[in-house]
Simulated scan of single mutants.
Amino acid sequence: MNEWLLAHPWIAFGLIYIGLVFIYNKVFRVRKLPLLKDLIIYILIAFGAGMLLIFQLDAGLPIIPCLAVAIGLMLMVKIRYFVEARQKRKEQQAQQEEAS
């Protein structure tokens, strides 16, 4: 996979950038920022993606697989919260039915 990414650096950059933007929006973004500040943040993310691209291609570090693992873990946490909220709703409904 690393050889293919080495042959297609723009695709590797795109994957890294999309992964970083997704992680930023799901983990670090607390509130909506003004447009100019948002633009500055996305430019800085692009700069960081460029640095990570160098690590991926030149140093051979597994940046893209690590981002995929991070996104997968975020998905697992989201599923866990969904299941816990669903169980909590069922328990509350059962308690309401017993009280009635």
Results as ranks from 00 to 15, higher is better:
residue 6 L to W: 01
residue 7 A to I: 03
residue 9 P to W: 03
residue 10 W to Y: 04
residue 11 I to E: 09
residue 12 A to N: 01
residue 12 A to R: 01
residue 16 I to V: 11
residue 16 I to K: 00
residue 18 I to M: 05
residue 18 I to C: 11
residue 18 I to H: 06
residue 19 G to W: 02
residue 19 G to M: 02
residue 20 L to M: 12
residue 20 L to E: 09
residue 22 F to Y: 11
residue 22 F to T: 05
residue 22 F to C: 07
residue 22 F to K: 05
residue 23 I to A: 07
residue 23 I to K: 02
residue 24 Y to K: 03
residue 24 Y to M: 03
residue 25 N to L: 04
residue 26 K to L: 01
residue 27 V to A: 07
residue 28 F to C: 05
residue 29 R to H: 04
residue 30 V to M: 07
residue 30 V to G: 13
residue 30 V to H: 05
residue 33 L to K: 08
residue 33 L to M: 09
residue 35 L to K: 11
residue 36 L to I: 09
residue 37 K to D: 11
residue 37 K to S: 11
residue 39 L to H: 10
residue 39 L to T: 13
residue 41 I to N: 01
residue 41 I to S: 03
residue 42 Y to S: 10
residue 42 Y to M: 08
residue 43 I to E: 10
residue 45 I to Q: 02
residue 45 I to R: 02
residue 45 I to E: 05
residue 46 A to V: 06
residue 48 G to C: 03
residue 48 G to L: 12
residue 50 G to H: 13
residue 50 G to R: 10
residue 51 M to Y: 15
residue 52 L to A: 14
residue 53 L to W: 07
residue 54 I to Q: 14
residue 55 F to G: 11
residue 56 Q to E: 15
residue 57 L to F: 02
residue 57 L to Q: 10
residue 58 D to E: 14
residue 59 A to H: 08
residue 61 L to M: 03
residue 64 I to M: 02
residue 65 P to H: 09
residue 65 P to F: 07
residue 68 A to V: 11
residue 68 A to S: 12
residue 69 V to S: 09
residue 70 A to P: 05
residue 70 A to S: 12
residue 71 I to N: 03
residue 71 I to E: 04
residue 71 I to F: 08
residue 72 G to M: 10
residue 72 G to S: 15
residue 73 L to H: 13
residue 73 L to W: 13
residue 73 L to R: 13
residue 74 M to N: 15
residue 74 M to R: 14
residue 75 L to R: 14
residue 75 L to V: 13
residue 75 L to M: 14
residue 75 L to D: 13
residue 77 V to T: 10
residue 77 V to R: 08
residue 83 V to P: 00
residue 83 V to C: 01
residue 84 E to D: 00
residue 84 E to C: 00
residue 84 E to Q: 00
residue 86 R to D: 13
residue 87 Q to P: 01
residue 87 Q to E: 13
residue 87 Q to C: 05
residue 88 K to D: 15
residue 89 R to W: 08
residue 90 K to N: 07
residue 90 K to D: 11
residue 91 E to S: 12
residue 92 Q to Y: 08
residue 92 Q to S: 01
residue 92 Q to K: 09
residue 93 Q to D: 08
residue 93 Q to S: 10
residue 93 Q to L: 06
residue 94 A to D: 13
residue 95 Q to C: 02
